[in-house]
Design a protein around this nucleic acid. Structure first.
Length: 502
RNA sequence: GGCCCGUUCGUCUAGUGGCCCAGGACACGGCCCUCUCAAGGCUGAAACAGGGGUUCGACUCCCCUACGGGCUACCA
């Protein structure tokens, strides 16, 4: 493998709500790049918007990263050489930068008030002009600014954008992008509450923290020139920009809740394996270059390349995620899978679980024994509940009518049940192989076909038409309980015949 | 409206001028296997947005158009 310089990348979410899969995918790419290059994956909380700040969001972000297994090298809780990692604790840094820019003439204090800005915008729109700041705050005198301050008016710091010129920015996935500076207005870098805007904070922090790659969504492309302008004015280098494509809903629009967009934790609660979500999301906007799709996190990390990130948006597909989840479940270790299933089996119905009547606590050994045959039959973890419930109840109540399978009559059901009771009484050892041999042997003695023989047994034992493989199920259920259910099934069937027949 | 980014099967994608009358995967149909359901195997239908160039040769390079999306805040 080619050696690469270690990348320092940060995931820098704004704690304003739950973490959606779009943000998650960005975090993924950060993590892959850091792990592939032996660099650092850093979490930085961008809480500079006091109005939209949501205290639960930060917890949600960290919980999501942890669930996905995106381990941090530096961050708010674990610290690091560039602490603190929360922007609201780094205000002095931004104020210093703003002051520096004012001193150099690249920024200025502006006391244009919000209502004046709104009126300006209104006028522009009425006149059919593009709405935007008209740089009216340039050339304010220190006295005017001081006067506004004394009167309690808002004062911000704006960056002075050159009136003309073209700015070229190199993007790692899109190549060279060109921007006409005459179209860009002076923009706020320090708000009237003393907090920086994203533009200033991003540039200052990414430089302070020696970030090498800024990986972010493509919605940031339009503001990239602002960032480069600040960097140039501050005399600091421009990091590599990696603008990743959006993940969209089926209609191509930005993902939102009503399109089925879910937070990471909702996928956790719905029974998805973190590796499957990781794998699926990684493939939305990136591919290893060949036909490989199902990969472990380490495989993805080692194969990850920024140059292979796509430049167009991808639509999210719940179906393919389900398929991916099943693929990972099939490959998973039996023990690990049993552990993953337990919470769903233990979860009572009122908490979103499926069954109220199963006996708890659920015997993990029983679950583990069924895992091998369950793997290829479930798409999400909770699917296991409906397949296993018959093992965790004292009695089942089979529907006698369902015992009569296709191309069968009542006589066959009686034959199958009676013969199986006799055969299973003698099977030894009571293992699925022996059980299968004994039951299959019945096809020659009874003249029944396999389907005709097994359907009544399945329904009597599991009370289901669709159930896990019969022989394994019987082995796990045990001889006594199986025989008991077969006998009761026989009784039930005879009762059914009497009531239905005459 | 302006600016920016994008456009290969329904969806995710491979494809970096000839290997492509375009390959894989999901979903869908058929067949096989089979104790139900799955899983698996085989198989079918399904795409280079349109138009101009450049070239001996364009899915691949350039331009235009169309369409889609993003941005256009003292939000990120």
């Amino acid at each position: 493998m080619t050696t690469q310089t270690p990348a320092r990348v940060r995931f820098a979410p704004s704690p304003t709500g739950v973490m959606h899969i779009g943000g998650l995918r960005t975090a993924l790419y950060d993590w892959f790049l850091a792990r592939k290059t032996g660099g650092q994956f850093i979490l930085r909380i961008e809480d500079t918007d006091r109005n939209r700040y949501d205290p639960d969001a930060e917890w949600h972000i960290k919980e999501s990263l942890q669930w996905l297994g995106l381990d941090l090298d530096e961050g708010p809780d674990i610290g690091g050489p560039y602490a603190p990692y929360t922007q609201s604790e780094r205000l002095a840094l931004y104020a210093d930068a703003a002051e520096k820019l004012i001193d150099s003439g690249d920024a200025y204090y502006d006391d244009t008030q919000p209502d004046e800005l709104a009126a300006l915008r209104q006028r522009q729109q009425a006149a059919g002009q593009a709405p935007g700041y008209d740089n009216r705050g340039r050339h304010r005198t220190p006295e005017q600014i001081q006067d506004s301050r004394d009167r309690g008016l808002d004062v911000v710091v704006r960056f002075r954008v050159p009136d003309h010129g073209e700015l070229q920015i190199e993007d790692e996935v899109r190549g060279r992008m060109k921007f006409d500076l005459s179209l860009l207005q002076d923009f706020v870098i320090l708000k009237s509450d003393g907090y920086p805007t994203y533009h200033l904070a991003h540039v200052v922090d990414d430089h302070e923290m020696s970030i090498t790659h800024v990986i972010r969504g493509e919605e940031w492309i339009p503001s990239a020139p602002r960032h480069v302008l600040i960097q140039q004015a501050l005399g600091i280098p421009t990091p590599k920009y990696v603008h990743v494509p959006l993940i969209t809903a089926q209609n191509g629009a930005k993902l939102s809740k009503r399109h089925g967009a879910q937070s990471a934790l909702e996928y956790r609660d719905a029974g998805y394996a973190p590796d499957a979500v990781l794998n699926y999301l990684a493939l939305l906007g990136w591919s290893p270059g060949d036909d490989t799709e199902v990969m472990t996190r380490n495989e993805i990390a080692s194969r990850f390349e920024i140059g292979r990130i796509l430049s167009h948006p991808a639509k999210f597909s719940a179906e393919k995620l389900e398929w991916m989840n099943q693929q990972h479940i099939m490959k998973a270790d039996d023990d690990a899978l049993a552990d993953m299933m337990m919470p769903f089996l233990e979860r009572p119905e009122e908490d979103g679980g499926f069954l109220d009547e199963i006996d708890r606590p659920v015997d993990r050994d029983v679950v583990k024994a069924m895992v091998p045959v369950l793997k290829e039959r479930i798409k999400v973890l909770p699917d296991a509940v409906a397949l296993l419930d018959f093992l965790f109840v004292e009695q089942v109540e089979p529907n006698a009518e369902e015992m009569i399978g296709r191309r069968m009559d009542a006589e066959m059901v009686l034959t199958a049940l009676n013969a199986s009771i006799e055969a299973l009484t003698k099977v030894d050892p009571f293992t699925s192989d022996e059980i299968e041999a004994a039951l299959r042997g019945l096809t020659s003695t009874t003249g029944l076909k396999a389907g005709q023989l097994f359907t009544p047994i399945r329904v009597a034992v599991t009370a289901k038409r669709i159930a896990p493989p019969l022989f394994e199920s019987i082995e796990v259920l045990g001889r006594e309980r199986t025989l008991d259910r077969l006998r009761k099934g026989l009784d039930a069937f005879e009762t059914y015949l009497e009531s239905a027949g005459e």
